[in-house]
């Protein structure tokens, strides 16, 4: 069985692992790295619950092979913020009741982060457009949109750049 050594930075920590080429990034993160916050929801690259950041951009980890992240950085929900120090997006989802079953939430928050990284002052329409690749069955989206706008406001008022939880862990 063919395996390949990859060097990848996951939530700020460099790891070096042998993986079979056919292993999807989502499975690599869940099964090999033990980061089960990244979920899997469909087979056809439509639902977005497996969204992670690859070099800062949201990507569907079910539609990348783990070997493709060799030399790259991956951020999962576990790297977004710790329980003691939630990222403003996580706080926003809590404050605005932006989640119910929680299954789409990690992907939704990482897609939200990319929206705010690019545009710190989005409109409701910007947020809805930016989340068009992430399905939610529970909330009807309205509170998710409010959660992202809540986080945007908080991040603007605080001014500083947020250090992702994973980087300050160790």
């Amino acid at each position: 069985m063919e395996e390949r050594r990859i060097n990848v930075v996951v939530n700020g920590e460099p790891v070096s692992v042998d993986v079979e080429p056919r292993i999807l990034l989502a499975h690599f993160l869940r099964e090999i790295m033990g980061l089960t916050g990244t979920h899997i929801g469909c087979d056809t690259t439509n639902c977005g619950v497996c969204t992670v950041l690859v070099d800062g951009l949201p990507m569907k980890s079910c539609t990348m092979f783990a070997v493709m992240t060799d030399g790259h950085e991956v951020t999962t929900v576990e790297g977004l913020g710790m329980p003691s120090e939630l990222h403003p997006i996580q706080q926003g989802f809590r404050e605005e009741h932006g989640l119910q079953c929680g299954f789409c939430t990690p992907g939704m928050m990482l897609a939200s982060k990319a929206i705010l990284d690019e545009n710190p002052n989005p409109t409701e329409e910007d947020v809805r457009w930016g989340l068009a690749g992430n399905l939610c069955r529970c909330t009807g989206y309205q509170n998710i949109v409010k959660a992202v706008l809540w986080a945007a406001e908080k991040m603007r008022s605080e001014g500083g750049a947020y250090v992702l939880g994973g980087r300050s862990r160790r």
Binding site: T36, T38, L99, F103
Partner: peptide
Amino acid sequence: DDRFLVGKGNYIDD
């Protein structure tokens, strides 16, 4: 939300 927001839910596949 405490567990869901940080990716610490316990779904069947976890």
